[in-house]
Design a protein around this nucleic acid. Structure first.
Lengths: 173, 173
DNA sequence: GCTAAAATGTGATATTGTAACATTTCGATT
DNA sequence: AATCGAAATGTTACAATATCACATTTTAGC
């Protein structure tokens, strides 16, 4: 039942997701070039698999999905690629899911808010600058030196909430 | 080298931690009473172990530490107690550490901010209402229905930052 | 081409968490 | 007090997530 039938993109995304992927991969390539780091084949493949949808992906799912392309792949193969991609800010780890998602703001800021839908499992990333400023104002007076900030909100996204209402209405027709 | 020598409280907390523990356990007892749920011996022991310091505790460390008290204890023993304590809002799961911390605001609100020190590993919980309001203002217009919010900040706490400076100065004396 | 560093291959194992079913304990009712 | 159903716990097995150490290969710079 998983729509991730190995490598093909989710067909139900409501936007041109191929463009989404190619943009992300293009930006990633440029950034790595500029920084003098290597977006190797494996790393590129892992990044592409992560971008195959806007859902957070688990490491062992990535492992299964990369095996057709890299029959030698082992857990370390995937985790090393993930480490690299996180270091370069090309993906985020979703702490509350032990999963990974493509970064929508690669090369830009690095404080983000993740909205995680319990229904469709898609994750939306937002810069949420006002929230981050409020967070900074909360923390600064405490003399706590912040090094990384994780904000993850679980709930129901607008699309899923709407379709739930639709269903409810349908029942009364 | 772990200061958690089984069950005794951390002696370096800079406050009367015994009172901290007994307050937390007292509140927990009252809340469970009021709610008609049972703070059984195992649950009470797990809660007490979690409160033995202000550091986040891992489930399997809890298992090791509860074994002298409950020789039958298995992973499920601990995880069930943790599930109960989380449900009742008596502890929080620290997502970015896969660990658990006593809740400093039991019975009150349920949106908190965790400040996690990478140096001493202590976790400070704050209500941070302004941050939460900013977060609500960010999310509401999106029609995303938030059900749970996780904010975890990793960094260096004031105490550790200060002692680092002290050390630096000492080198130049 | 040579070399050192980076990346990957490989096997083992550590850590974290859950499922399923049996047994015991608790508390409300008779 | 006996009983009965629900809640809690005991118990076994295993699933899911992640890391480590060491061998080998690839790469970029010389």
């Amino acid at each position: 039942m998983d729509i991730h039938d190995k490598t093909s993109p989710d067909p139900n995304l409501g936007h041109n997701h191929k463009q989404c992927i190619s943009e992300a991969l293009g930006t990633a390539g440029q950034l790595c070039m500029t920084r003098g780091v290597r977006l190797t084949l494996i790393r590129h493949q892992v990044l592409e698999l992560i971008w195959s949808s806007h859902k957070a992906v688990k490491a062992y799912d990535l492992l299964d999905r990369i095996k057709p392309l890299q029959p030698m792949a082992k857990p370390a193969t995937v985790y090393r690629a993930l480490d690299f991609l996180i270091e370069q800010g090309l993906i985020h780890r979703v702490e509350s899911l032990n999963a990974f998602i493509g970064c929508s703001y690669s090369g830009q800021q690095h404080e983000q808010l993740l909205l995680i839908c319990k229904s469709c499992h898609e994750v939306e990333e937002r810069a949420a600058e006002k929230v981050m400023k409020a967070l900074a104002r909360e923390i600064n007076p405490l003399a706590f030196i912040a090094q990384s900030k994780t904000i993850e909100v679980h709930g129901i996204c607008a699309k899923c909430a709407e379709s739930a209402i639709d269903q409810t209405n349908t029942r009364f027709n």
